[in-house]
């Protein structure tokens, strides 16, 4: 008897993704949705999508979704969670959203130990706007606003937001993962599971930073993008559990 062993998760709508070929966003969407399904929290989860490519996440996640202004996801999620403390609230944010325009909201939401989960998608560029320099663009990496590559003297170095957040007392779990290989995708799912479980247990602020390919703006093929994460991005943003107070 043949058995269906892999299909669309319950909490991803049957809509084609608008993302470019090889984009990591939709892999991450799927992983989050799988975790929501496996933890049985689909009917009490509220998601907060960002500004950027993933703003349309509300078209894909089949859970309640409330849009936030650019960078304000954690503040908005705070408002939801404080009113509905028994619901599961996650914000989904890109690197520009969380580590540039929304740095303040991110740090202070973490510092208050808000019991929410943040999915931080790091693709080293502003994707939606056409590939400008992001706070996480690598030194030497080309972007539409760093002709000749990011220069430390001119542009500053890439920012290690997750490491910064680990210093903040309200955070309980921070891990950096990637979706550029089967193994990393599986680890990412484990990390997302752990982050949501931390929230379910009421432990405090959890965040998973996920290195994600952006073949369009990197101007690489999908497979080259995955390789580039291994060879270059991880040199600056190594995969690791940055903080784990869950045990």
């Amino acid at each position: 008897m043949e058995e269906l062993v892999f299909t669309r998760p319950r909490y991803i709508k049957k809509a084609p993704f608008h993302y470019c070929p090889g984009c990591g966003h939709s892999i991450i969407h799927r992983l989050v949705a799988e975790v929501i399904e496996e933890l049985g929290i689909g009917e009490k989860t509220i998601g907060v999508p960002p500004a950027g490519c993933a703003v349309l996440a509300y078209d894909y996640f089949d859970v309640d979704m409330g849009e936030a202004p650019h960078g304000r996801g954690p503040a908005l999620a705070t408002g939801i969670k404080r009113i509905l403390p028994d619901r599961i609230v996650f914000s989904y944010q890109g690197d520009g959203d969380i580590a540039a325009i929304g740095t303040s909201e991110t740090i202070h939401t973490a510092n208050r130990g808000e019991n929410i989960t943040v999915i931080f998608v790091n693709n080293n560029c502003y994707g939606m706007t056409g590939g400008q320099m992001a706070p996480t663009t690598l030194l030497g990496q080309n972007s539409t606003t760093t002709p000749g590559g990011r220069d430390e003297n001119r542009d500053g170095p890439p920012i290690d937001l997750s490491e910064m957040l680990a210093l903040v007392r309200g955070t309980v779990y921070i891990e950096r993962t990637a979706v550029n290989s089967i193994r990393n995708i599986r680890n990412t799912k484990k990390a997302i599971t752990k982050a949501f479980k931390a929230q379910i247990a009421g432990l405090g602020f959890s965040l998973v930073e996920i290195l994600s390919p952006c073949p369009t703006n990197w101007k690489m093929s999908s497979t080259d993008s995955c390789r580039w994460i291994d060879e270059s991005v991880m040199q600056t943003f190594p995969l690791k559990v940055i903080k784990d107070e869950i045990g």
Partner: peptide
Amino acid sequence: TGCTLCAVICPDIAIEVYRG
């Protein structure tokens, strides 16, 4: 073999896998 690797990495959930 129905190992699901293709489906796991597919960004567009375009692959369903059956085994058995």
